[in-house]
Design a protein around this nucleic acid. Sequence first.
DNA 1: CGCTATTTTGAGATGGCTCAAGCTATGTGG
DNA 2: CCACATAGCTTGAGCCATCTCAAAATAGCG
Lengths: 249, 249
Amino acid sequence: MPIATVRLASRTGLDFRLHLVQRAPLFRGLDAECCGELVRLARDVRVARRERFFDQGDPASDVLVLCAGRVKLTHAADGCEQVILRVIVPGEVFGGIDVVDGGAYPLGAQALEASHALVWNRCALDALAARQPILLRNVVRILGERLRSLEQSWRDLATVRVPQRVAAALTRLAVQIGRNGDGGTVVALGREDLAQMTGTTPFTVSRLLSDWEARGYVQSRREAVVVLDATGLARHAVAEPRRAATVGE
Amino acid sequence: MPIATVRLASRTGLDFRLHLVQRAPLFRGLDAECCGELVRLARDVRVARRERFFDQGDPASDVLVLCAGRVKLTHAADGCEQVILRVIVPGEVFGGIDVVDGGAYPLGAQALEASHALVWNRCALDALAARQPILLRNVVRILGERLRSLEQSWRDLATVRVPQRVAAALTRLAVQIGRNGDGGTVVALGREDLAQMTGTTPFTVSRLLSDWEARGYVQSRREAVVVLDATGLARHAVAEPRRAATVGE
DNA sequence: CGCTATTTTGAGATGGCTCAAGCTATGTGG
DNA sequence: CCACATAGCTTGAGCCATCTCAAAATAGCG
């Protein structure tokens, strides 16, 4: 499948859209009329696994709310090392909410699995925001939350060791994007992705997972990790004593 | 001097306040009437070097705009390691712009030198924002900028080596908080602060500075670094080849 | 049913941390 | 005005957590 397959709402249903708009934190508190207008203005965009909604550096023309799927927000510089700053789940906003006119997306958005989003033109939302200040308030709230989470994450990256960071990320991800199955919570991310979220290498992640698998905390899968014992993992996340990579007693 | 000495505007002058309010990015685009109201609502807070405007975890009741001085925003967890996420210079906002009602300051604000801020009650600003949506727009813009800068910084922390990070931080700080003197730009920060801004230890910072001093890029001072050759430093920031800590050829 | 992407594992190198001393401004009290 | 106390800085030595690189094992996919 090529880039962003666009189609008009067909069987997707206008009422489905309405439901989504009314649930999205971005639009919380807007009256029915506004929600109706939003539904009318929205475009539908679907992308396949590994395809992108947009790239870092593209003109930031849209604001998106994820309907279904998982999307990772990435940041790279001069073609080299890439990191993952955030994973978006259905209901969340991404794209150009906070970008000033004429700016570019600071992050790229790549689908971890087939995904579907409602998309608005930034100008259109700006116009709505002028009439509905609550929309701006929502944006401020959302940005504030993100800022806090990033600040925390920055601190962890600067002060916490790799095994603890990976363990913490896994437990968080289990809650955020995990799916139940096989007696545990399946986190559908490969080693590379986990490494890019925690500031380490796929090799180190792999070693940690092997270790934790031996202890029964997780089950290693291809492109996924099954969290079996979140508590045990969390304990490790806090008090990892020393030598996590050594499998020995 | 104890905590936050508060006094009414005396010789500080109402016109001085007005000037500041009109220049602050937070209040950009507000009409004269609003600025006047803001001046009337503002409190004056001064703190001595090393004192704090507020601590992480305090109820986030205020929004502050720095008038004079330098303030570092810190983040710590369970009493241990602390990091510095940002340095505020005059004109910038800090405090509880993005915190929802009843929340706490996510960061602490400690003065790097004797500092002076105008302070507003969050509720009062909220009331103003309800009438002047441009204020919310400004907040969104400011939060967006911060988010982008933090994202970039997160990536650097995850992918870039210590010497490059420190060199990059120094050149940035020279522009942001540097003062001219002694044939260079004086950055008034100690090794510990530099370490907390770059995710390393004071020891490593010290070694790097010794090295760069030998090369003539900087001059090591107590509680300060004089940047003599920003270009040379920047070159190091990009292409640090290997072994920066070894002084030898 | 071979191909390719992903993962695992080993072995080795090393960047940066830790800890322990010693050093030097700075300010202080005698 | 000087000697001392103190906070900040430097330096050395050693270690070890983590990265690198290479190679083999595995698992989907076409």
